[in-house]
Design a protein around this nucleic acid. Sequence first.
DNA 1: AATATTGGATACCTCTACTATCTATGTTAG
DNA 2: CTAACATAGATAGTAGAGGTATCCAATATT
Lengths: 205, 205
Amino acid sequence: MRISELSSRSGVSVTTIKYYLREGLLPPGRQTAATQAEYDDQHLRRLRLIRALTGVRGLSVSTTREVLDALAEYTGDTHRLLGLALGSIRVGEVPSGDASQAAEVQALVEELHWDVHASAPARTTLAETLASLRALGVPLDWRTLLPYARLAERTAALDLDQLEGLDDPLEAAERALLLTVLLEPALMALRRMAQENESARRHTS
Amino acid sequence: MRISELSSRSGVSVTTIKYYLREGLLPPGRQTAATQAEYDDQHLRRLRLIRALTGVRGLSVSTTREVLDALAEYTGDTHRLLGLALGSIRVGEVPSGDASQAAEVQALVEELHWDVHASAPARTTLAETLASLRALGVPLDWRTLLPYARLAERTAALDLDQLEGLDDPLEAAERALLLTVLLEPALMALRRMAQENESARRHTS
DNA sequence: AATATTGGATACCTCTACTATCTATGTTAG
DNA sequence: CTAACATAGATAGTAGAGGTATCCAATATT
């Protein structure tokens, strides 16, 4: 298919597709002539993935490129993909110097006997959030976080269950990406609804 | 205190503070003369809150204003604050027309007997995420989401526990805000770490 | 009195994510 | 076979977000 068909089938304008090609989010099509290239279903799929990551999850174009690069690099090694590629996504702010709460995070990880890389970006995100909360007068220690971490453990188990039985490594890697990244807004939405429900329950009993 | 002290104590530049004043994120100080105003600890606290919401959580300035307005409006009514004010935060994308997965969400809510307002934005977020996943070949039905929702229920119970025993309504409202919004990156970070751990466990056993 | 600071207003800046235009080439309908 | 239209690639332009810089008149400090 040519670019205009790719555009109409994906709902993304031709100029935007060209922009993604320039930015390296989308691999170039197969050149058939000097001013002609051919695209296939892989491109369409990739394009939809890009729109999901930027639109639903709100990732920036450069972060999306990093994620997609990682996807290509670690396809077939879901463990590395989960540990490294997806870790490259900044959940919160840019990693600044202060890791004043790193000790709390370490205590939590040790208590749970978690096997988590020492340089995992999620550690930094967690430490920074704790530091912010502390500065605002809500000091959470690792003991308070423990029950949350236990629930995260069970959530992660559900996530990994979803990846069982997928033999095609590319498919498995892509699904890992989708479930980890795209499911985040869904899980937060579930939490919001559950909070509303729980609050109603406690206030009307 | 005057604006320069507010600036040095918060680490936010004077010009940025003026910008926040213009944008209505920060209430104006008490005017003592035509070119002089006095700020207090409330302003300092508010400023730190703004930086936490925009920096750690990545909220836009306009969303932050909405959240802070809601905080002022519903102080003393934590239930409404949780249900409405915090619901105003867009977790994902701008609410577009397609709510093709709204039926799945409704089925889930009914199964759980959740008391969630029909117009809760979290419903839309969830429906949209499901629609995106479906378009990408990962159709999740409400049955798959059910165990996730059960865990969300327990997370919400922990959240509400944290609000117990706070008598000052302003403090309770602010803590509700902090725990719901600022804890999100922390919970996602915990999930990432738990995924890495679980993946390592399954691959090395 | 001299110097610095402040509030308020306005203009400007940088970055991101596109969007528009241009040109040289290809394709296709009549 | 030619006129109308599509295409790749390059370059320039745009709108919005989130500040930043400058100016001014009034006020505070020394």
